[in-house]
Amino acid sequence: MRVIVIEDDADAAAFVKGVLNEAGHAVDVCGDGKSGLNKARTGDYDALVVDRMLPGMDGLKLLKSYRDGGGRAPALFLSALGEVDHRVEGLQAGGDDYLVKPYAPSELVARVEALGRRATGDIPTTKLAVGGLEMDLLARTVNRDGQKIDLQPREFRLLEFLMRHAGQVVTRTMLLEKVWDYHFDPQTNVIDVHVSRLRGKIDKDFARPLLHTVRGAGYRLEA
């Protein structure tokens, strides 16, 4: 992926660049809002990573101008302001995701990669498939190798999210946010337990596991 990072703090920008480079993405860095906006408009990027507080033009305004100018690349806000109100502001300004500082590098990579997938998968789908696992979004049914799997509504949503991001790491926080719509981290391992239950249903009777645990990061559904 080609990513532009618009962040005025040079250390933070270098860190983001390093983390994303390591994950195999090409990164351009821009230190202020105005030139960042120009660069984002003219360059062909797959994703934008925008700090909310920028000199010259703040992140919200920058993204609004970018969207008004027809820019379609998905954007992730980075911010020290982490309340739900701030997230809502970010999403209203045209952001696709919102990551609160401080964050783990794995979280950043997972979220940026999730953005890239979203951009390419704009066409509404009715069926998802990973390996022999198939999900029918209209009939709300799941099969693996032709065998029907019964899921609770929440398990269905959890699996849907994992399948939409197949091959990518999804973090516990991402699952909490996107599947449960919670913006806090419970102290107990609630997500792990839910994932392991789901794993019991989709992997238990099959030779090859699809749902993998990525240590220190989260989970990945992969054929």
Binding site: V84, Y182, H183, F184, P186, Q187, T188
Partner: peptide, 19 residues
């Protein structure tokens, strides 16, 4: 109520109970 705040407060109480 603010859903997220109440959910977090209750989640904290549940966390403690489980712990």
């Amino acid at each position: 109520a603010d859903r997220d705040l109440v959910a977090q407060a209750m989640s904290n109480l549940m966390d403690n109970a489980v712990k």
